[in-house]
Each structure stands twice: as C-alpha cells, then as structure tokens.
C-alpha cells in the first residue's frame, strides 16, 4: 500500500473507532438513529459526488439506485431469507447491472440532457414500483418488516448492532470510494471532466470511463439504500422518488464538491436542518426551499469548500500574496 492509502485506512479506522465508542459515552437513541441515517444518506450523497464532483456529470436520477438498493435488499430478504451479507452483495450486483443499462444510454448525453434523462429513468423505476404491487407493495411500500437472521454472531434486530453495522458499512464504503478517486481511474475521470477531448486524444476511453463511474456510483448508492431499508425495516416508493435525487444534489452542493468528505458534511447539515425544520415549522418545503435558495444564490459553493478556500486564502495572505481564486465546483 502506498502512503496516502495507508493514511486513508488509518483515518477510516480512527473514524470507525470514534463511532464505535460513541454509544458507550452517551445512550441517546436519537444520536444512534441520527448516525444510521447519516450513514445511509452519506454513502448515497458521496456516491453522487463521484459523478458530480469527480466526473462532472450532474445526475438528477441518482435516487433510482438508492430506491433500488432498498427494494432489492428488502425483497431478497423477505422472499429468500438468505444470509444478510449475501443479500447485500446481490443487491450491489443488481444495482450495478441496472446502472450499466441506464448508464449505457445516459452517459453519452451532455449536461442537462444527462440530468433529465437520468431523472426520467428514475421516474420510470418509481412508476414501476408503484404499479408492480404483488412484488413491491405498490404505493404502500414494502411492508411486513425485513427479516434479519443473525450472521457471524451479529444480530441486526438490536439497534446497537445495527448502528455498528451501518457505521462499518459507511466507513468501508467511504474508504473504497476514496480509493477509487485516488486511483489512476479516478484521475482519468477528473481529466474526462475537465477536458473530454484531450482525454480522448491521450488514449482514455471517455465513454467507458464515464460508464464505469456511473456503475460504481450506482452500486455505492444502493449500499446507502440497504442501510436505509434496515433502519426503517421496509422500503417506500419515496426512496425512488425524484425528491430523493433533489435532496442528494442539495447535500452535495451544501457540503461542497471539492472535498471528498464534503457530501458527508452536507448530509449531517441537511439532516440536522430537516429535523429542526420539521420540529419547528409546519411548512417544510417552504423553509427548506428558502434555505436552498440562500445557499445556491448567496454562497454559490458548498460549506466545506467555502471553509477550505477561506483557510487557504488566510494562509496565502500571511505570505503577502493575493488570495487565489479557486475554480468553482470542481474537485482536485
């Protein structure tokens, strides 16, 4: 392993240890629920950032894979009762396969077309979930709970163990994605984002690079869906609804696209905001919409990007040079 990879692994281990110790310090079940939801949405948002931040592909249908993960996992567990790790693996494969088909059509398209055609595919899946009542439960969602047979001595019916399991999936998922973006493939992806023509001339297969990113992002998003379906013990059509994608795009923008952990920060902020708004205000959409407008039109970049640039500007000001103007909305 190279040194940065070792550092990432050490950081991931440290992060997991902190999460594992957390329930020993406080017994607040609200905190535990919060971390599980953070794990689900954080993986989902970080996987979207593979496309948005690193690939320059603004997908507006990423919720498809979140819903796909939740439903595939739920249905597999309800119908076959296979061990959980196998079901998770199968779910990842199914989502990757769906992503391959959708991506094969979509990734050739330019920006706004890409955004809306991915959205159209998501709405297609959403309408199929609603229509295919015998399998998916229609608009009632997948009910009756998801069976959780114990495996390797882990019993996910226990909220504490589910918490540890989610935290582990989150850390492993993030580590894997971190590894992907720092691999040669990750740099090829950035190059395709910055200048697809040049990347093509240098022998990079642009189409295949984008498609690979799309498939990987779809698989990791479904992992978020798996956690969510375990958390709510079911799957609901809202998971595949367009607002889910809208939320993910907002999370990515909220946290910032230029830092790997930006989407995770964004997830935390959005969940806190959501909880706060639903507790205090009656009109959730109105408040949330206003906050989004404020961010999008006022700050014009993610929070973590903003902080990082501010820090960088302060550091250079000490060296008596003018502050550098960072390129907006791109990852380095």
């Amino acid at each position: 392993m190279t040194r940065p990879a070792l550092r990432d692994a050490a950081l991931a281990l440290a992060g997991f240890l902190v999460l594992a110790i957390l329930p020993l310090i406080t017994s607040s079940s609200a905190l535990i629920d919060f971390v599980i939801r953070c794990a689900a949405l954080g993986l989902f948002a970080t996987s979207l950032n593979l496309l948005v931040g690193y690939g320059g592909m603004v997908s507006f249908g990423h919720g498809l894979f979140f819903g796909m993960g939740a439903y595939s996992f739920g249905i597999l567990m309800q119908r076959t009762g296979m061990p959980i790790p196998l079901a998770v693996l199968l779910t990842l494969c199914i989502s990757a396969l769906v992503a391959l088909v959708v991506g094969a059509i979509c990734v050739r398209l330019k920006e706004i077309y890409f955004a809306f055609v991915t959205l159209a595919f998501q709405m297609l899946v959403h309408s199929m979930i609603i229509a295919w009542v015998p399998v998916t439960g229609g608009d009632q969602g997948l009910r009756g709970g998801i069976p959780r047979p114990a495996f390797l001595g882990i019993n996910l019916s226990d909220q504490k163990q589910l918490y540890l399991f989610s935290a582990a999936l989150l850390v492993l998922g993030l580590l894997a994605m971190r590894h992907i973006v720092s691999s040669p493939f990750g740099y090829a992806l950035r190059m395709v984002r910055d200048n697809a023509t040049r990347a093509g001339f240098l022998g990079i297969n642009v189409y295949r690079t984008r498609l690979t990113a799309f498939v990987l992002a779809g698989a990791f998003a479904s992992l978020g869906g798996v956690i969510m379906s375990l958390f709510v013990s079911g799957a609901y059509p809202e998971f595949a609804f367009w607002t889910m994608s809208g939320e993910a795009v907002f999370i990515v923008m909220l946290g910032g696209t230029a830092n790997f952990l930006g989407p995770l920060v964004g997830t935390g902020i959005l969940l806190l905001l959501n909880d706060f708004v639903t507790r205090t205000a009656e009109h959730h959409g109105l408040v949330l919409g206003s906050v989004i407008l404020l961010f999008a039109l006022g700050l014009r970049k993610g929070l973590l990007d903003f902080v990082m640039e501010w820090l960088a500007a302060r550091r250079t000001r000490d060296a008596a040079t003018p502050a550098p103007v960072a390129v907006k909305g791109t990852s380095t």
């Binding site: 923008m253 109105l286 919409g289 989004i292 407008l293 039109l297």
Partner: peptide, 29 residues
Amino acid sequence: FMQRIYGGNVLMQLLVCYALVLILDDLVR
C-alpha cells in the same frame, strides 16, 4: 431568481429550480 443562474453551472440551475418547486408547492398548499 432565474436571471442569476443563466450561464451558471447545471448544479446551480437544478438546485434553484428544485428550491422553487418546493416553495411554490408549499405556497399552493
């Protein structure tokens, strides 16, 4: 709102419109 996002990146356009949909739906409600 719209005038500020002409020529902006797609992410911003989608977000501003997403926010407007949330707000207008809620206002109608």
